[in-house]
Write a protein that binds this DNA or RNA. Structure first.
Lengths: 202, 202
DNA sequence: GATAGAAGTGGACAGGACGTCCACTTGTGC
DNA sequence: GCACAAGTGGACGTCCTGTCCACTTCTATC
């Protein structure tokens, strides 16, 4: 009944990915990245990706159930890096003695704009519409902003967190950029928003 | 070359909708309203609507090129009513001597929450994802909020307007409501946001 | 009313995307 | 080098879309 003591401690017996599988995974990610970048991500089909990667439909579906999961895989490391900085990085992005929640929110906004600017196409592929809220990443941003709102003494930090994350929707970002709004203007606007809502009021 | 003077002044000669066409239009709208309400609007197909309305595909497509246009048609009168109130209604929704932009924005938020609560299903059908920004309605809300931001002396009212409208995204509203956040909490949060950003700062 | 022609109708059709299934191939541990 | 698990790829059935066009119904006119 008990686990065999000589097995490695990992819960899963570590199934080891086969060499051809690893090669194909890499091909898929590379092909998808390219396709997402050069076309409207919503129009990229699983077929397109399979063709571009030079593999069959079945192989693609074996690991990625849909386009969204591929975009998420591509996004993953970038989002983790930012999350790391939020938790343990230097202020104002990370926590610090003499930095208030409004400044940290503004810094977070700026960092997200950075992420958006570099990877809108992936974010549009991964977090379009309602899918956004079911992302692990969204949960993390939510926790972070809620925490800042609490620090600022907000009455309902939970609700406020979602409202404050809304302006970071990838669709909005694309819309604004395509309409000629510069990265800086968006960042400045968001900073205003941050200080207005979480700033120390008189 | 000149227009015949005895014709009615309307630009289009008013082609008069045929009786059967009018009947079918009504059927379509009724059926669609019902379907949108009882299912996830994104999953309602043109076929579903045609079947529910008891008409053929071709007939449906004749007037409505896609699901979105049907949802918009259903939404239209409600949105117009609100627009009317914003322009000519009583303060704080409408313009007034002793009402500041922050209060008007809060009132607008509250009215939009009302609209969302009653018609999320239609808004999800009509303004999902990027389609939202190409709506005439969005343009109107945008103009209104920009105007308020200008009154409040915002540096970049244009950019701020989009940012302030983001929390009204139908997907977010559905997400919040489904997660148990009450209508009141959302309204209160938005009011905070309104006063924080457009309120008179010390 | 009868009628001509415009307006409206509905279902068949082709195209494309999805997701599954399974006979075959390839890699890996023994 | 063998056995078998893991991986592969393309064919298949289903669903949805949007168009097309032969047919029907309405309405303006006489």
């Amino acid at each position: 009944m008990t686990r065999r003591p000589d097995l490695p401690l990992a819960e899963e017996p570590a199934p080891r990915e086969r060499a051809d599988a690893a090669r194909n995974r890499a091909r898929v990610l590379a092909a998808a990245e390219k396709l997402f970048a050069e076309r409207d991500p919503a129009s990229v089909t699983m077929d397109d990706i399979a063709k571009a990667a030079g593999i069959g439909r079945g192989t693609l579906y074996r690991r990625y159930p849909d386009r969204v999961s591929i975009a998420r895989a591509l996004l993953d490391e970038h989002e983790r890096a930012l999350q790391e900085k939020l938790m343990r990085g230097a202020p104002p992005l990370g926590p610090g003695e003499d930095v208030g929640p409004a400044d940290r929110l503004a810094a977070f906004y700026a960092a997200m704009i950075d992420l958006l600017e570099t990877h809108v196409h992936l974010l549009l592929g991964a977090e379009t519409g309602s899918a956004r809220y079911s992302t692990g990443a969204y949960g993390f941003w939510r926790l972070h902003v809620r925490h800042l709102a609490q620090q600022a003494g907000a009455a309902d930090a939970d609700t406020l967190a979602d409202l404050l994350l809304a302006p970071l929707a990838p669709e909005l970002y694309r819309y604004q950029r395509e309409n000629g709004t510069s990265l800086e203007r968006i960042s400045t606007g968001l900073a205003e928003l941050a200080h207005g809502t979480l700033g120390s009021r008189a």
